[in-house]
Design a protein around this nucleic acid. Structure first.
Lengths: 114, 114
DNA sequence: TATACTACCTTGTATAGCAAGGTATTAGGC
DNA sequence: GCCTAATACCTTGCTATACAAGGTAGTATA
């Protein structure tokens, strides 16, 4: 149902803009497969679901920001282990700048208006 | 055209999730009309255009987060001066919490992965 | 061999930002 | 008085993307 009025909506909206950044951050640590990316995001209070992550990973793959290798699992079907390409490392850097600019802007707005 | 690959896209995406918060912050300082809201956002490096702001203000009005008064201008057509309702003040508080949670989550992700 | 679990992926819907274009009021030059 | 510019409000159509829900397939285990 549309037109949420409750408080949770604020959180949801804010998280949207930074998901790609968070995913790049996590992948930058080392090769990882989607289900574990979701787990790690949740541990950091950043909720995400499969229907969001898979299209995001595909998009980043087709933009040559990410690449992956199939690796067999000992406890189930094979997994796609993702890593950053060199383009991905550049992209992460620019996300980091964006984040730092954005949080500076907002923190200064907060200071001005309290 | 879709599928931006350049660095600016990161900034654009991130700003999206926090626009409502920024607008509430600015209005919380005192009555203000749309064109001046845009000016103030720009001064804080948060680009926004009319086609984004007017629908946002209407939405917040219909959710009873904002209210406005028409005030005559000495240099042009009359202006809608917006202010927060009591519901709006609550909403601002929850946005502030969301912002603080989100930036904590992300900053801890950054620390972990550097 | 059937069920549970893990892992991958797709489809349809709603939201929201933006580009572009439109209407109306006032001021100022002539 | 009349035309142009400036200011201010608003709408339409498009696109991107997050999510809910549901689907496919490989592996383990009872």
């Amino acid at each position: 149902m549309p037109q949420e009025t409750n408080a949770e909506n604020a959180t949801v909206q804010m998280r949207k803009g930074v998901l790609e950044f968070c995913v790049l951050l996590i992948i930058s640590k080392g090769e990882i497969y989607p289900s574990d990316i979701i787990k790690e995001l949740k541990e950091n209070n950043l909720i995400i679901v499969e229907g969001t992550l898979y299209p995001l990973l595909s998009r980043l793959k087709s933009l040559q920001v990410l690449e992956y290798t199939w690796i067999e699992s000992k406890s189930g079907p094979p997994r796609k282990y993702y890593r950053l390409t060199s383009k991905g490392k550049e992209s992460l850097k620019s996300h980091e700048k964006s984040w730092s600019n954005l949080s500076n802007s907002i923190n200064s707005l907060i200071k001005k208006h309290e």
